[in-house]
Each structure stands twice: as structure tokens, then as C-alpha cells.
């Protein structure tokens, strides 16, 4: 019933608008072409000015209304992300000035120079001076932006600091699998044909000793505050993207071609709850590359904790090999632990 009502209202709306438009066309014919042209021109000229003013008010209002929902008013959760924020602000200011300047000129000119019987348009064909000015100014500004951008880009994509912890992350439809190298600090070998969704989600090769102490977790990964972490990112099926908006970074997860991303968490999850004033806050990992019909639900969680809490958590983790072979009392874990200790 309501459907028909809506359709009827819509039809009525169309018919009325079209009739009004038709009548106004007849009226303009009666009035004479010149008269109606100049009237319409005035109306549209006025609307140009109105649009400029209301538009700028709208931009301001939109900012008032939405600014707090963005990350702009929240500190970056990583030290590296602070550079992104800084770049953002430089770019916002530069492009903001250009935006205001050109939009104001556009609509102001349209309003100011609307048709007038008594004015003649200026025959102004070109001006080398002007053209040089407005080629060089954008060029200089852009070179500045490029310079800042590339310095940061080199930093982000450069080597991770020494002593960074390494975590492997693998995307799959539709979730995230994490792997810590275990006490030997070496990721064991894996091969995708070994994957068994129940017992070996990454296809680890347990014959390789260094795989036996590898710890595999799903969905949640623990990181240490102020300790750089380097993610080695891969995918088990299609392309995903390891998206970390709170840290201002992201990197694709591509099957067969590992990528990397490093950063240094700055606030623990608990601290971030206070900063954002949101008791439910978590560092969510969003998949940012279309990966199938469950793409929108491909969520992971990063828990950033203090070193002590991390150690407590880590102590409770069992290696995948140990979980699969509970009777073996994880001999490799023991031996590798002792190796690690003797190394120290």
C-alpha cells in the first residue's frame, strides 16, 4: 500500500514540476525572449552567489559536525603515524587555501560578470606573465609537498629499527592469522599445500625444527607499547589489505608475495580507551581490499600492552606443534629455550 502511495506521490511531483516548467516556458514566450532571458539570468546569477555563501557555510558546518568523528582530533597510535598526521595538516592547509581561493573566484566572477546589456566583455586572449605565475606557484608548492612526502615515504618503507619484534600475519577469507616465531626468533618454513584448516592453518612444515615452537593465533595479536614491530604480511587466498587506521598505515596482503610494514605503537589499548573516551575502544584491523562477500566482516584486533603484560600473555601461549601433539611435552620448545638462554 505505502509503495503505491510513494509511487503516486512521486508521479504527482513529476507532473507538477513539469507542468510548472512548461508554463514558465509559455510565460517567457509571451513576455518576449529578451525579457525572460534577462530575468532568468538574474536569478541564476543570484543563485551563484547564494551557492557560494551557503556552500562555504555548509563546509564549515559539516566540519563542526563531523570533525570529531574522524581521527584528526585523536593522536596517532603509532609514532610513525604522527608523521602522516603532520603531512595531512600541511596538505589540508595548502589545498584548503587553493580551494577557498579558486571556488570564491569562480562563483564570484559568475555572479559579478553576469550578462549586462551595457557591458562589453573584455577581449583578453592571453598573458604570458600571468601564465608563468600560475604555473610556477603550484609547481613550487608541489615540490615542497613532494619533498616532505618522500622523506616520510622513505622512512616508512625503510628498514625497521634494530630489535623490532617480528610477527607474521596472513589474511584469509575472512579473517587474520598471526604467527610469532617462538623462542628461537626464527619463523619455521611453511608450504601452502600443507594447510589443514583444522590443525595447520598456515601449512607449517613441522619437520623444520624452527617451526615447532612457532605460535599461531587467530584474530587477535598482542604488541608491546613503545617496541617497534615489523609485520610480514601475506595471504592464503585472494588479495587482502592489512588496514590499521589508528596507526595511520596499511599494506596489502598478496598471495605468494610477502610484504612488510613496521611501526611503533605509542599507546596501550587501555590508554587509548581513556584518550578516546570510549570504553569499548579496540585497535581494529580492517581489511581494506575487496576480498569477497565477507570482506566487510574481516576484522582483526591488535592489543597493545605493556611489556610485563605481554610476557604474561606470551607465557600462556602454546606452540601450534605442541597443541597438535600434546603428549610430546614440547621438547623442541624446551631445547630451543635452553639454546636461547645459553646464547644470552
Amino acid at each position: 500500500m505505502t509503495t503505491y502511495l510513494i509511487i503516486a506521490v512521486l508521479l504527482l511531483f513529476y507532473i507538477v514540476t513539469i507542468q510548472i516548467a512548461k508554463t514558465s516556458e509559455y510565460v517567457s514566450i509571451i513576455k518576449g525572449e529578451k525579457e525572460s532571458f534577462s530575468q532568468n539570468n538574474k536569478i541564476n546569477g543570484f543563485l551563484m552567489l547564494a551557492f557560494l555563501i551557503l556552500g562555504l557555510v555548509g563546509v564549515w558546518y559539516c566540519n563542526e559536525y563531523l570533525y570529531d568523528t574522524t581521527l584528526l582530533n585523536k593522536p596517532s597510535a603509532s609514532y610513525e603515524g604522527e608523521r602522516v598526521d603532520q603531512m595531512l595538516w600541511i596538505t589540508i592547509i595548502v589545498t584548503g587555501i587553493m580551494f577557498l581561493f579558486t571556488q570564491i573566484l569562480l562563483f564570484w566572477f559568475a555572479f559579478r560578470y553576469q550578462h549586462n546589456e551595457n557591458r562589453k566583455a573584455l577581449f583578453f586572449v592571453h598573458s604570458t606573465k600571468l601564465e608563468i605565475v600560475w604555473t610556477t606557484i603550484p609547481a613550487v608548492v608541489l615540490f615542497v609537498l613532494i619533498f616532505f612526502g618522500l622523506v616520510n615515504w622513505n622512512y616508512f618503507t625503510g628498514e625497521a629499527p634494530k630489535g623490532a619484534m617480528e610477527v607474521e600475519v596472513t589474511g584469509k577469507q575472512f579473517g587474520w592469522i598471526f604467527r610469532y616465531p617462538g623462542s628461537d626468533n626464527v619463523f619455521g618454513k611453511k608450504y601452502y599445500k600443507n594447510i589443514d584448516p583444522a590443525t595447520n592453518t598456515l601449512g607449517l612444515i613441522f619437520e623444520d625444527g624452527s617451526a615447532q615452537d612457532d605460535i599461531v593465533t587467530e584474530q587477535t595479536v598482542y604488541l608491546v607499547k613503545n617496541k617497534p614491530v615489523k609485520f610480514i604480511i601475506g595471504s592464503r587466498d585472494v588479495v587482502h589489505d592489512f588496514g590499521l587506521s589508528h596507526f595511520r598505515l596499511k599494506m596489502d596482503a598478496v598471495p605468494g608475495i610477502p610484504t612488510t610494514l613496521w611501526f611503533t605503537p605509542k599507546y596501550t589499548t587501555e590508554e587509548m580507551k581513556k584518550i578516546t573516551g570510549n570504553p569499548n575502544f579496540t585497535y581494529e584491523i580492517s581489511c581494506d581490499q575487496m576480498c569477497g562477500n565477507g570482506h566487510y566482516s574481516m576484522k582483526g584486533v591488535i592489543m597493545v600492552v605493556e611489556q610485563a603484560d605481554y610476557d604474561l600473555w606470551m607465557a600462556k601461549q602454546k606452540s601450534l606443534y605442541h597443541i597438535n601433539n600434546p603428549d610430546t611435552v614440547a621438547p623442541t620448545t624446551l631445547t630451543t629455550q635452553t639454546i636461547a638462554q645459553t646464547k644470552l
Binding site: 532571458f37 539570468n41 573566484l105 566572477f109 559568475a110 560578470y113
Partner: peptide, 11 residues
């Protein structure tokens, strides 16, 4: 922008 500037604009 300069094309519109000091033109005689018909909307």
C-alpha cells in the same frame, strides 16, 4: 577562471 573574468556571462 580568467575566461569568465570580465566576461558577459549568459547562464
Amino acid at each position: 577562471l580568467t575566461t569568465i573574468w570580465r566576461g558577459n556571462v549568459r547562464f
